[in-house]
Simulated scan of single mutants.
Amino acid sequence: MLCALIMAGGKGERFWPLSTDEKPKQFLKLLGEETMIQMTVKRLLPLIPIERIFVVTAARYVDLLKEQVKDLPVENIIVEPVGRNTAPCIALSAFHISRKYRDASIVVLPSDHLVVKPDRFIETIEHGYKFIQNHEEGIVTLGMKPDRPETGYGYIQYKKDYSYQNDLSGEAAVTREENGQCLNLYKVERFVEKPDEETAKEYIQKGNFLWNGGMFIWKCSTIIKLTKAYLSNTYSILKDIFESSDKDFTNKLNEKYPQVDNISVDYGIMEKAKNIYVIPSDFGWDDIGTWYAVERYRDKDDNNNVCVGDTKNLSASNNIVVAKDKPIVVVGLDDVFVVESDDIIFVGKKKDIDRIKEIKRNVNK
């Protein structure tokens, strides 16, 4: 049985000042009339019913989640007492889902990504799930075919040679036609960190490097076993929590969970595990990580301005302007971004977008 786990606990600091600790980017309408979490749930529904969609988030966001995803069963909201990175977050969720669906497989995905081709996205997940059904110890990750030398993403290197053998011991496995396009599974050689620009260009030229989209398909039992093998402290703590009575569960979770390892799933598990396969994917993916991503997908006026809300650009070009309650007029300026939030109006040069987190810290001193 396939379930989905959506990770929705991040703070989204790179979208400050619109994204705040109280309402981070996954609960914002950055790309249209739906919030990022609403878009993520909606694209899963053709394959996975809402009863089998789980969301892991922080306690402070539970009410927001209930408000924005009204059909989500309350028992499918998994609450992290504190953020301890993705490895314990996923392991906690695997224990939780296993209690409801004993033999569940899960597709794990972030709450704040864009998918332009949802049908293709569903086909790719189906392909990975079928592989997992036949290979219980396997892990499938979705790697995005790069179209630019991106320095903001990690990469996945896979073995170029592949066979048609549906066999985990092979160098690679399984190919299938979907709507005239091939879906392949390749053996992962390694995960690599965010590169500099020259290295990213080399990756693209080599042709066997994919963007790491942070999406995985595996059985709950597999991720629990891998947590036990590579993060024994986290496993022991979670096992103890889930062996407690229903009455004591929440208190024990709040008491013990802060002691788990603070580590990403890439560092803690994926770089050590065997039997990892990747599907080179092409479903119009983007990590909506900065205002540049919004600029890529929002409609623009004749002078290449992104205008959200009541805004006007006069003798101005290449700007990002986001109005909330008041009209904003930009005159004679190029390459700036202006964002109105509940608390402040931020004006800056677009070249400083990558410094948003630093700027936020300085403003809040």
Rank of each mutant, 00 (worst) to 15 (best):
P327A: 02
Y162E: 13
E22W: 04
N166P: 09
D161Y: 14
G143T: 10
I132Y: 03
L109G: 07
V115E: 10
K23S: 05
E295M: 01
D325P: 11
N303W: 14
K350W: 04
D266R: 00
E33C: 04
Y277S: 06
I359L: 13
R52D: 11
S245G: 11
T151K: 06
D282H: 05
C307K: 07
E34H: 00
D301M: 00
D161T: 13
N275M: 10
S232G: 12
E136L: 10
D240L: 11
K117N: 03
S317T: 09
N251V: 10
Y164T: 14
K117M: 06
N134G: 13
I328H: 01
L5D: 05
L253Q: 10
I53N: 04
I50E: 05
L314K: 05
E13C: 08
D282I: 02
F121I: 01
I97N: 02
E137M: 07
R190E: 13
V116K: 15
Y101M: 03
I204E: 05
K100D: 08
C307N: 11
V56A: 05
H96D: 12
L47D: 05
R361V: 09
L314H: 08
I269S: 01
T290I: 00
L45H: 01
K159A: 07
D354T: 02
D112W: 01
L18P: 03
R52T: 08
Y186Q: 06
D286W: 02
K11L: 12
E178L: 11
E177H: 13
P24R: 00
Q205T: 13
V41F: 04
F216R: 00
R120L: 14
I48V: 14
K159D: 03
V363N: 09
K160G: 15
L142V: 09
F15T: 03
V140N: 05
L72A: 03
K252H: 10
R14H: 01
N303E: 11
Q68H: 06
L92V: 07
V265K: 01
T290W: 02
T141Y: 11
G9A: 10
D63Q: 12
L2G: 04
N262A: 08
Y162L: 14
E189N: 14
G128K: 06
K365V: 15
R120P: 02
E340T: 03
V306A: 04
M1Y: 12
R176K: 14
T141I: 15
R296N: 08
V74F: 14
V115A: 15
A293D: 15
V56I: 11
L231I: 03
N254P: 02
D342E: 15
Y235K: 07
P17E: 01
G10H: 00
G348Y: 07
Y101C: 11
L210H: 05
I50Q: 05
K160E: 12
L333D: 02
E340Y: 08
E13N: 07
A8N: 15
K145C: 11
